[in-house]
Design a protein around this nucleic acid. Structure first.
Length: 463
RNA sequence: GGCGGCGUGGCCGAGUGGUUAGGCAGGGGCCUGCAAAGCCCCGUACUCCGGUUCGAAUCCGGACGCCGCCUCCA
């Protein structure tokens, strides 16, 4: 049984399934108006790991994640850069997928785009106007939050308390400062869609509720996103679903944020750090390891030091892959436990680590246990227990792959010149001509290789 | 002001009242022609002050410090 924290109940509870064996999950995706930052990388990694783990456990996962391709920020960007809104969205959506591919985040089952669902949004807003849950002001259509009795559930605060702390300036036209825009009327030069209540564009909160219910249907299993989406975004999605008489997500969960020098990254602070830049300069697997070695609901500090630390940890894993010549798994393929034939040690490892991951996705414990298993495996191999060691190594490889982390052994292409040097060095070593052997090692290193001796002779790899 | 979270050894980071988290870095040793990789040993950490308890990093109270949400944000 898989248990997972549920924001709505503020506790870890069983992840219920609408249909046995099938998990429907919706992850709020990006608004594509700029390059992705580290925070995007964090939440996509967290939910990618979750998805991969659920799949590994045999669930058929339908993973929907949207692209918000119309929004105030896109309009601003378009005006600033002298481009059309669709051009801005297309540019940054392409950048988004490029980053996701580098991170090894598997593509969603479906990726709805907000602009393709405007008709459904207009219908929903119309129904709110009909029931007086929505009302028109001079700049748009608003949702009356007082119509939802338990508004504030996800925020963990009642409506009154939220209202008292509201920092939004009161508008004469809004019934409550907490009321949010369902629809914004188009100003001069802004993109718009026709609607009976006036041409304009949908509000962000309306986009996600329409797309999630539209694709996954009533009572879908799991709705997730970053911490800061809890309120108001998810609260407002939920409010609309309830007001519309729909059965919304049965389980909610939120991943922790990224800290940069003791502060949360955020738009208002402007302390963005580009994910694209990180991926250009480091092994993307290091960020995944950094993410999974702390709990998904804790904040993480991403610095050059913590990334470098993770990169070095990764070397230990890659060394295991080299030693046992493990195949590279994961990547675009989502691993499923049943497709791997494991020995008894491997199966025992899956059982042990599986229990950790089934309990609120405890990746830090799982990673620690996997590193312990790495030590044990090397120990066994040193003692000549090759069969058991191999059994464990395969299990480790499969489990890391289940979390989306690929262990890389020697996959480097060796050119003819280098392989001649390797052969020459093996001959020199066989003849105990150490001076010659060291000279040849120096030549290989000058060519950029890391040189290691093994039972089978000289091994070279890219450092 | 309201709600919530955190403070662990050089760094990162887990931790269910009593038994080794784990990784990185560092020191010593083994193995190795020398290296690399690997293995073994080493740090006796829990912001502070009280309390509960046979026993607390872990529970309770308080102090101090830090962070998040309450506005766009992943």
């Amino acid at each position: 049984m898989i248990r997972l924290y549920d924001t709505a109940h503020a506790e870890i509870r069983a992840l219920g399934l609408r249909e046995p064996g099938h998990l429907s999950m919706y992850v709020c995706g990006p608004t594509v108006y700029d390059l992705p930052h580290l925070g995007h990388g964090r939440y996509t990694l967290v939910w990618d790991v979750a998805r991969r783990w659920f799949s590994f456990r045999g669930l058929e996962v339908r993973f929907v994640s949207n692209i918000t391709d119309i929004d105030d920020n896109i309009i601003k960007r378009a005006q600033r850069d002298g481009l059309s809104e669709p051009e801005v969205a297309a540019t940054y959506e392409a950048e988004w997928w490029r980053a996701m591919d580098l991170l090894g985040v598997a593509r969603p089952s479906e990726t709805p785009h907000a602009t393709q669902w405007v008709g459904e949004m207009v219908d929903l807003i119309t129904s709110f106007l009909d029931s007086d849950t929505g009302y028109v002001t001079s700049d748009g259509v608003y949702f009356d939050v007082s119509r939802v009795p338990d508004y504030g559930l996800l925020a963990g605060q009642p409506l009154e308390s939220l209202r008292a702390g509201a920092r939004i300036e009161a508008s004469d036209e809004k019934r409550s400062p907490l009321d949010f825009a369902l629809w914004k009327f188009a100003k001069e030069g802004e993109p718009s869609w026709p609607a009976p209540f006036g041409a304009g564009r949908p509000g962000w909160h309306t986009e996600c509720v329409v797309m999630s219910l539209g694709l996954l249907g009533d009572g879908f299993d799991l709705h997730t996103g970053g911490f800061d989406l809890k309120f108001p975004h998810h609260e407002n999605e939920r409010a609309q679903a309830i007001a519309a008489g729909r059965d919304f997500a049965h389980h909610w969960d939120h991943s922790g944020w990224v800290m940069v020098g003791l502060e949360k990254m955020s738009k208002s602070l402007g302390n963005f750090t580009s994910l694209t830049h990180l991926l250009e300069t480091t092994d993307a697997r290091a960020y995944r390891l950094l993410v999974i070695r702390s709990h998904y609901r804790s904040p993480i500090d991403v610095t050059t030091a913590t990334i470098a630390d993770a990169e070095r940890s990764l070397e230990r894993l890659d060394a295991l892959a080299r030693r046992f010549e493990l195949p590279a798994l994961a990547g675009e393929v989502i691993e499923v436990a049943s497709s791997h034939a494991l020995g008894p040690k491997g199966r025992a490892l899956v059982a042990k680590i599986g229990a950790m991951l089934d309990e609120d996705l405890d990746t830090p414990s799982a990673v620690a246990a996997l590193f312990e298993a790495v030590s044990l495996t090397n120990q066994l191999a040193d003692q000549g227990e090759d069969e058991i060691a191999w059994d464990l190594a395969v299990g480790i490889n499969v489990l890391f792959a289940a979390l989306g982390l690929t262990l890389l052994g020697s996959t480097d292409h060796v050119d003819e010149e280098s392989s001649q040097l390797v052969r020459a060095r093996d001959e020199a070593r066989a003849a105990k001509d150490w001076a010659r052997a060291d000279e040849l090692r120096g030549q290989l290193m000058a060519l950029g290789w890391v040189v290691e001796d093994s039972a089978s002779g000289t091994l070279i790899r890219r450092g």
